[in-house]
Design a protein around this nucleic acid. Structure first.
Length: 552
RNA sequence: GCGCCCGUAGCUCAACGGAUAGAGCACUUGACUACGGAUCAAGAGGUUACAAGUUCGAAUCUUGUCGGGCGCACCA
């Protein structure tokens, strides 16, 4: 029995009280079932009596008593007792709890998915770096977390597209091109240009492939270098992200937004909504109508579009492409954009509470052995995504970024994640998965066909089995809350708890018969439990984009 | 000055408004002639920055104070 199924039972019990005339309130749609921290309190607990008491005009403990009595009579419930101010602690009988293992194995990869966001079409945009250098650790946090958010939303039933907005327009691109060109001629890079060692590499690669480029007239040559370097750098970013298991559905170029007429179209849409005005020779969007602290310029007095104009047009374009929710994942240095982007949605005639969502990820601070590492792309002093992956591997890198909520600042010590990789929690979870696989492999070698054997769920009566089943049953609600809150770290933390439950179970309960032992129903039941555990850990790790190895 | 985020164990961090605030690392001590010891068990470590308020109940919500990060362009 999952907590969700138990909630249905509790609602049924409340409805029964209401039918008997013992309760004069509407039975709530969602009854809260929680898992007590202290297992002495039972398998599950509900605070329904506490929350309904005031409304019903009945003392909480009195209502709890009636609820407990009604629950005790329900199938699958061994006991229900009141506790504290009016909690009802519920203990399931072994068979009802053990049945969960069969349910999980039967559901397979679908176990944990839900329909809370069914019908929603969501665009998740993240990273969106300039193609003027390698992706660094600031981008890396969203590369991992953004991808996991998209996966979790999909698990909740949404149709999700992951999108990368390429900032390939503007003066930064020109500075980038100028830097590479200077390097190609062996000259010092301009002061305000890009100084990383990768600039030299790009210059060398470009001139090797196209030596004649050095003979072009200066203006033409600058453009040639810029475009060639852009292409190489973009492909490098794409390749690294692919290695990192973050695949984008759409790479959207800012230039194409202008070339396709989308910018003009977007502006027309905003004008039609009546929020565009002219002042001092510039064209403005009145974002202050919707909570922004100042109005924003769309077209400068010199006739040039601002970056903000691209942003607005991009939003309109996303909506035109059929997305009903546009999620933006931005770094903390962009938090000033939150109100502005919401205002853009409102100016376009949309609902800024439902069509747009901006999540801010706090910056990642890097230390190496306690010493802070200052990052500066232009100075070339950066830790790249590629470096990180090379040093710790994709799984450890992704996992150590995902297991913390993105809205709190994070300090990563490179020395810790590079030198003590075996202490990384990802290995703890992966090890649990590998261990289950090993047991199931051994069962197969012993010729035990647990799938065809009779599964008696009441065999799973050991406390450690109960703990493990309880943990497994939490998975769907953890996924649902991770999706609702856009917090995939909840899945990671959950997997660590589940791995612990498995290791503890494994330590206390022998799964396979030893040498001269007969195969007992208990062995079969435990194999079902193992199979269910493997499925949950596999599903969870997959949701985070982390591999679930069968051997380590 | 204004705005956003954050202050929880020595360190890095958890905790739908729920019961005795939890993990990992580090520290102390135990457990393999058993399916993977990358494991398990036990110990120690806290005025949840501070102060009021809201209620059956606050690390969580409100307000204020202090401390830290980041941002406040006709830049991109």
């Amino acid at each position: 029995m999952t907590p969700e199924e138990l909630a249905v039972v509790v609602r049924g019990a409340l409805a029964e009280l209401a039918a008997r005339g013992d309760l004069f309130v509407a039975v709530p749609d969602d009854v809260h079932i929680e898992r007590p921290r202290n297992r002495d309190h039972g398998d599950y607990a509900t605070n329904a009596a506490l929350t309904l008491a005031k409304q019903a005009g009945i003392p909480p403990r009195e209502l709890a008593t009636a609820l407990a009595e009604a629950l005790t009579a329900c199938k699958g419930i061994e006991s229900a007792e009141i506790a504290g101010p009016g909690f009802v602690n519920i203990r399931l009988d072994d068979a009802a709890q053990g049945e969960l293992a069969r349910g999980i194995v039967t559901a397979g990869v679908a176990f944990g998915t839900g329909t809370a966001l069914a019908g929603r079409t969501v665009n998740v945009e993240f990273i969106s770096a300039n193609p003027t250098g390698p992706l660094h650790l600031g981008h890396t946090r969203w590369a991992a977390v953004g991808d996991a958010i998209a996966r979790v939303l999909a698990a909740a039933g949404a149709t999700v597209a992951k999108e990368f907005y390429i900032n390939d327009r503007g003066v930064q691109m020109d500075k980038f091109g100028a830097s590479v060109m200077a390097a190609a001629h062996g000259k010092p890079v301009p002061e305000d240009g890009y100084h990383g060692g990768y600039i030299l590499d790009l210059a060398a690669e470009i001139t090797a492939a196209e030596p004649a480029i050095l003979q072009l007239p200066e203006e033409e040559q600058l453009i040639a270098f810029r475009e060639a370097a852009y292409g190489l750098q973009l492909r490098q970013q794409q390749s690294v992200l692919r290695i990192f298991h973050t695949e984008f559905d759409v790479w959207y170029s800012e230039r194409s937004l202008h070339d396709s007429g989308a910018v003009v179209k977007g502006l027309d849409k905003l004008r039609g909504q009546g929020h565009v005005f002219e002042l001092d020779g510039a064209t403005w969007l009145r974002t202050t109508d919707f909570g922004d602290d100042k109005d924003r310029v769309l077209i400068k007095a010199d006739g040039e579009y601002t970056y903000f104009a691209s942003d607005t047009a991009y939003y309109v374009d996303k909506r035109d492409r059929g997305f009903d929710l546009c999620v933006y994942l931005l770094g903390a240095d962009h938090h000033g954009y939150v109100n502005r982007l919401r205002a853009v949605a409102a100016c376009a005639g949309d609902d800024m509470d439902n069509n747009v969502e901006v999540l801010i990820g706090q910056l990642v601070k890097i230390v190496r052995g306690g010493e802070e590492v200052k990052l500066s792309k232009r100075a070339g002093n950066i830790v790249t995504l590629e470096d990180l992956v090379d040093e710790v591997g994709v799984d450890a890198a992704r996992y150590s970024l995902i297991r913390y909520p993105a809205d709190s600042p994070l300090t990563l010590d490179l020395e810790v994640i590079t030198q003590r990789t075996s202490d990384n929690p990802v290995f703890y979870v992966q090890y649990a998965h590998a261990r289950v696989c090993s047991v199931l492999r051994n069962a197969e070698e012993l010729g035990i066909d647990w799938r065809s054997a009779n599964f008696d769920p009441s065999q799973l009566s050991h406390p450690r089995e109960g703990e493990l089943l309880g943990a497994l049953g939490q998975f769907p609600r953890v996924v649902a809350s991770a999706a609702e809150l856009r917090e995939p770290h909840r899945v990671a933390r959950y997997l660590e708890d589940t791995a612990t439950a498995y290791h503890r179970f494994y330590d206390a309960c022998r799964v396979l018969p030893r040498g001269d032992e007969q195969l007992e129903p208990e062995h079969i039941a435990r194999l079902w439990l193992c199979a269910a555990t493997r499925q949950v850990i596999f599903n969870g790790l997959t949701m985070l984009g982390v591999s679930a190895p069968e051997r380590m």
